[in-house]
């Protein structure tokens, strides 16, 4: 599914500001962007750039000091309680740490079924069927539902976390460094899985990463953050081929090349 850029955005961040503690620079300072249906917007930055804080504000784990997060007509930053929880159905998140993002004492089937339990009227049998279907879609087997998270590898746990996140077909998926804790050969598997799910379900995606090479093929547009600000935002190709900001150029050129060779001294 190609992103429908003219359509109204599924998610819009407006001038988000977050300051931790009283003094000093805000961690996030006036960040704005919009995500079109089916589009993947990558937010790239180094540690301390504010990209993870931005992700957390998008999904409501942190309340912004100022600004709004528009999911359709609703400002998530202004919602509370039951109404906020209901809206979460459309906005899910995949975390960096596949080891920690699943409750260690809960069977993975129950973890995946939890959003269905909260947001749908499906009965227990229907939820089980849906969990089996989701497990298959992320490349696992239905019988894995009865196991505990510790019985799976990092890549498999990330598949489970993705199954849980897409269980209720959210309109937006926020991925915070979803592959940076994984082995190289597994990273590409998970990126393929995310790209495939996006094709089939058409969610908009905000993909947070420190690694420009990882987002190269999955991102339609890329935003570069530094020191809490969005210093550049543009189509992916343009960011790689013709970066406007000096910092973006530094980031692009810092990615090690497989073609580099050490001089033999």
């Amino acid at each position: 599914m190609t992103p429908v850029l003219e359509a109204p955005p599924v998610l819009e961040a407006r001038c988000l500001v977050k300051r931790f503690g009283r003094a000093g620079r805000p961690a996030v300072n006036g960040v704005s962007f919009a995500v079109a249906p089916g589009e993947t917007l990558a937010i790239v930055g180094e540690s301390g750039s504010g990209k993870s804080t931005t992700a957390r504000m998008l999904v409501g784990l942190i309340r912004p000091d100022a600004g709004s997060v528009l999911l359709g007509p609703d400002d998530l930053a202004a919602l509370r309680g039951r109404r906020l929880r209901a809206r979460r159905r459309d906005l899910q998140m995949v975390f960096q740490d596949p080891l920690g993002s699943l409750n260690p004492v809960m069977r993975v089937g129950d973890s995946i079924a939890e959003p269905l339990l909260l947001h749908t009227d499906l009965d227990a049998a229907a939820r089980r069927d849906r969990v089996a279907d989701l497990l298959t879609r992320v490349g696992l087997r239905p019988e894995h539902a009865d196991r505990l998270p510790r019985e799976f590898s990092g890549g498999q746990r990330q598949r489970i976390a993705i199954a849980r996140a897409v269980a209720c077909s959210p309109r937006v998926l926020v991925c915070d460094e979803p592959v940076s804790a994984l082995d190289v050969s597994t990273q590409a598997q998970i990126l393929d899985l995310l790209a495939g799910l996006r094709e089939s379900t058409g969610f908009g995606c905000v993909f947070i990463s420190h690694d420009l090479s990882v987002v190269r093929l999955i991102a339609d547009r890329i935003g570069v953050m530094r020191g809490g600000e969005l210093v550049e935002l543009g189509p992916a190709e343009q960011i790689y081929q013709d970066p406007a900001h000096e910092y973006t150029r530094a980031l692009v050129s810092a990615v090690p090349s497989l073609h580099a060779r050490r001089k033999v001294t």
Binding site: V184, S185, Q187, A188, D211, L212, S213, V214, R216, L217, Y240, V252, V255, P256, S257, L258
Partner: peptide, 8 residues
């Protein structure tokens, strides 16, 4: 072939 740097 799996190295993410290829994407660059």
């Amino acid at each position: 072939a799996a190295a993410p740097e290829n994407a660059m």
